[in-house]
Simulated assay, not measured.
Amino acid sequence: MKFGVVVFPGSNCDADCLHAIQTVTGQPVEYIWHKSGSVDGFDCIVLPGGFSYGDYLRCGAVARFSPVMTPVIEFAQKGGLVIGICNGFQVLTEAGLLPGTLHRNKNLQFLCHDTFLRVENNTTPFTCRASLGQVIKVPIAHGEGNYYAGPETIRQLEENKQILFRYCDPHGEITPEANPNGSLNNIAGICNERGNVLGMMPHPERCAESVLGNTDGQLIFQSLLDFWQRRCG
């Protein structure tokens, strides 16, 4: 399985993602420059966190028009695996690969601390190693992570089980106090209807090694590898 990590001007989590993927999966991974016109040869594309193009206009708005996004969109539409983390999630919504948008945090402040997430669907390529309702600890680092979508979109996300992660307390309870940024329905991560595109605000690459004091983020990368190995027989 070959991973590709897109590098936009302003990306600052690309090296972290590449290192975490190498460490956790042992699979080949390469950077993909934002001006690239192809993603051929890759099995999973990662859009990392950071401040692509300085978040001018709004987060992810300029990156959506990078040359690389044309083949990324085509790759996703054909069923290719794509994961957007933090700013990458914002880019995916701007590109129309995921519904909704990310607003400023409810307290209008940048947040950087651990959060607890409850796994809401463990049948996707990104969560197949998890138990339904499992609680994992994953850090956030964002100023615009407040997920919003219209009532009909929220209803569809709920009915289609496209909400993969919700902010919760350490015991798995979904409470307003456990919601760090004001996201509707405590949403921390969603997938598209087909289930091959994930966007999440928390950073699994920052909690994927014991030296960091937390390995819960391994769940996402190991799930992807398990899914790929089953798909390839």
Rank of each mutant, 00 (worst) to 15 (best):
P180C: 09
G50V: 13
Q156I: 11
N146P: 07
G80W: 07
I83A: 11
Y56K: 14
C86Q: 01
P99D: 09
R104C: 14
P71R: 10
C86A: 01
T101S: 12
L57G: 08
E159W: 03
G150V: 06
G172K: 07
I174P: 05
Y148M: 04
F65D: 08
N87I: 00
F75E: 01
K137Y: 08
G80Q: 05
N107E: 13
L102S: 04
C168V: 12
N179P: 03
I187W: 01
A76Y: 00
I190S: 03
H103T: 07
A149Q: 08
V62S: 12
N181P: 04
F75M: 05
F116G: 00
P176I: 09
N122L: 03
L184R: 11
V72D: 04
N186M: 05
G133P: 05
R155A: 15
M69T: 05
R58M: 11
G88C: 04
P99M: 10
L132E: 06
S52M: 09
P170L: 10
F89M: 02
Q77A: 06
E159Y: 05
K161D: 12
Y53K: 11
N160M: 12
R129Q: 10
L92Q: 03
D169I: 06
T127D: 08
C168M: 10
G189K: 09
N121V: 03
I83N: 01
H103Q: 14
I73Y: 07
E94K: 03
S183I: 03
L157K: 04
F126L: 08
P71C: 02
A149R: 11
Y148L: 05
G145W: 02
F65C: 08
E158D: 13
N181M: 06
Y167C: 09
E177K: 13
E152L: 15
L164W: 02
D114W: 15
V46W: 06
G88E: 02
